[in-house]
Design a protein around this nucleic acid. Structure first.
Lengths: 123, 123
DNA sequence: CAGCATCCGAAGGGATACTG
DNA sequence: CAGTATCCCTTCGGATGCTG
């Protein structure tokens, strides 16, 4: 029955905007999409799956996702070290919206490319 | 019947990634969310609705969206000038996924804030 | 292997002033 | 009003080298 206080991402000072800034991000989207596929993934596997991401950026993205409670980190005290990542329950609620974005990009890229060509041709 | 060639946002060189980079972006999300609400919107109304956005960033975001065929621009040769923006048919297919992201941020911000507090407390 | 530290160039983004 | 142009600071992000 009780409703949340009015959170609104369009309001500059609303805390929800900090969350939007994190999830509405290409690296975040790709990492979550990668983690959606299977189970836990090792750091190195993620680095391979999210093609082109640098180690630094992957580390930072994972840290931020962990901080926001979207990703869980499992480190094993082995040599060489092994670290696995997986979506938390909260993170799994992001699978659908972020996969939707990824699919949109793949499904409509032809139209987008055509629009770009037309736009650029006009100038 | 015919299927698209394999577009995959996780592949570094896939053109669909350029599209993902554009739509998985906080300003893009907020502008599309703002345009989803009503009909056409004037530049100034958008600037007010997307609270905190600077004129420069709003201009750039709208140009990029126009170039990708997601937003249509209607300029009227009046004094003072009036320019209206609206989502194209293609842009409207983005309403649902991007609104979903906005809603996610608003609905889960409490959990996210709690996770951040816990994470920060541990260090 | 996973990561941190460092360096550095590129891109993002705000403020201000100006114009049709 | 809706831009454009400029300036400048901040953040992003790649490359390299080092460590447990």
């Amino acid at each position: 029955m009780s409703r949340q206080p009015d959170f609104n991402v369009l309001t500059a000072t609303c805390p929800s905007r900090t969350s939007l800034a994190r999830i509405a991000n290409k690296w975040t989207a790709m990492v979550v999409i990668a983690l959606s596929a299977g189970d836990r993934m090792r750091f190195g596997d993620l680095r391979t799956t999210v093609d082109g991401i640098s180690g630094k950026v992957l580390t930072e993205t994972l840290r931020d996702l962990e901080r926001d409670g979207l990703v869980a980190r499992h480190a094993y005290a082995e040599i060489p070290p092994r670290v696995e990542y997986e979506l938390t329950a909260l993170g799994r609620t992001l699978e659908t919206p972020l996969q939707a974005l990824g699919h949109w990009a793949e499904e409509h890229i032809t139209e987008v490319l055509a629009a770009r060509e037309e736009y650029d041709a006009r100038r």
